[in-house]
Design a protein around this nucleic acid. Structure first.
Length: 362
DNA sequence: AAGCGCGTTAGTC
DNA sequence: CTAACGGACTAACGCGCTT
């Protein structure tokens, strides 16, 4: 059964919302920043509008660099997640009404499965136009929609034309659409995979799609190797489904790089409190407590501990995160931390819905 | 041998 | 002249232990 999957992606969402509530920003380069609080500019760019992108400013970039590129032309504003969440959930609710098979991926992205409601791709295109129009009328926000036979193709298609784009990829067009793109553009390929691709001489998605599956498995492991190969070939059978949260975490930057347990504990306590609030709000019980340690080279380490019961106690979060951190620092005498985080996961009654991936013979 | 729990890393927005 | 650098989340891996 060929499916009709939409992927909707709000255009430069945070920056668009900042423009919306502050008309003075319109027409200017707008950069929405996360400030870590360590110094005036420390932090990173969350989103930049298109004017700012023309100056070379991109999300994830250090604020200091963005400031340099933006000079006095760009406007820098801090994130206001409560505002973004409010608008996002109104749009998400609208999506949910439109197609009951719906999956929110992040604050600004969702999949919709219209297989049962729509007969042709021509009609799908019309529905997508209507959705875009209605979102704009309601919220004055534009989005880009990709339509394809599965989530992967829909997702790659929504990126094709931005902002305010609509891209339909028919099943017979999938390979022509994917193959010419560099392998780095394939969803799920990051720096580590690219390193391996380089060694194997894989440059385009076509190279990957035609590469020997067994050699990919040797290099990436069974599941990841097969996953990459399938994706390169446009194969993806993941269902669109509304999944529940699997984790709650908080992370923050230390005032200065340190491995002093006193300073770190103070921050861990605050983070534990934030995580506990999320746990209470979501009304869940967790079994696993983790810490995240990011050193001065921005390398990320994690340590975790599973309890033999489900808990919602703040003491459990505090105690275990402190113990984990103490042990981590003792075992890694050279680590000097820049940021740290606390996370809880393994929620009661949420057995991971994954696992239907049957790896046949090859 | 398959499946699970656990602890960890890679990747995305 | 270079380097600069958030926070929240999901998926999957590898290992050891059970069944």
């Amino acid at each position: 059964m060929t499916r009709i999957i939409f992927h909707a992606d709000f255009d430069y969402f945070y920056a668009a919302l900042e423009e919306l509530r502050n008309p003075e920003l319109r027409g200017k380069p707008v950069v929405v920043c996360v400030y870590s609080g360590r110094s005036e500019d420390s932090g990173a760019v969350a989103t930049a509008n298109y004017k700012a992108r023309e100056l070379g400013i991109k999300s994830g970039m250090p604020n200091s660099l963005a400031k340099k590129l933006g000079k006095d032309k760009a406007v820098f504003v801090p994130t206001d997640f409560n505002y973004y969440k409010e608008v996002s959930s109104r749009i998400m609710n609208f999506f949910r009404e439109k197609s009951e098979i719906f999956e929110q991926v992040s604050i600004d992205e969702a999949y919709l499965d219209f297989t049962g409601k729509i007969k042709s791709l021509k009609q799908a295109e019309k529905v997508a136009e209507e959705i875009k129009k209605e979102i704009f009328e309601r919220e004055r926000i534009t989005c880009s929609i990709g339509i394809g036979p599965n989530k992967l193709v829909a997702k790659m298609a929504s990126k094709e034309k931005k902002p305010d784009g609509l891209t339909v990829i028919r099943p017979e067009e999938v390979k022509d659409f994917l193959f010419p793109k560099p392998a780095s553009k394939l969803f799920g390929v990051g720096p580590k995979s690219l390193e391996i691709f380089e060694r194997l001489g894989i440059k385009t998605i076509k190279d990957l799609a035609e590469f020997d599956l067994n050699i990919l498995i040797e290099n990436f492991g069974k599941a990841k190797g097969k996953l990459l190969w399938e994706r390169a070939n446009g194969i993806d059978n993941e269902p669109v489904e509304d999944s529940e949260r699997q984790q709650a975490s908080s992370i923050a930057t230390l005032e200065e790089n340190t491995r002093d347990m006193q300073k770190i504990n103070k921050l861990l306590e605050e983070l534990a409190k934030e995580v506990h609030e999320k746990v209470k709000k979501q009304n869940v019980k967790f079994k696993t407590v983790s810490i995240i340690a990011i050193n001065k080279y921005l390398e990320i380490r994690t340590r975790s501990k599973s309890l033999d019961y489900f808990s919602d106690s703040i003491e459990d979060i505090k105690d275990h995160s402190k113990n984990l951190m103490e042990k981590f620092l003792a075992e890694n005498p050279k680590e000097i931390l820049r940021r740290c985080g606390v996370s809880v996961s393994n929620f009661e009654g949420r057995e991971k819905p994954i696992g239907q991936k049957t790896l046949g013979e090859f």
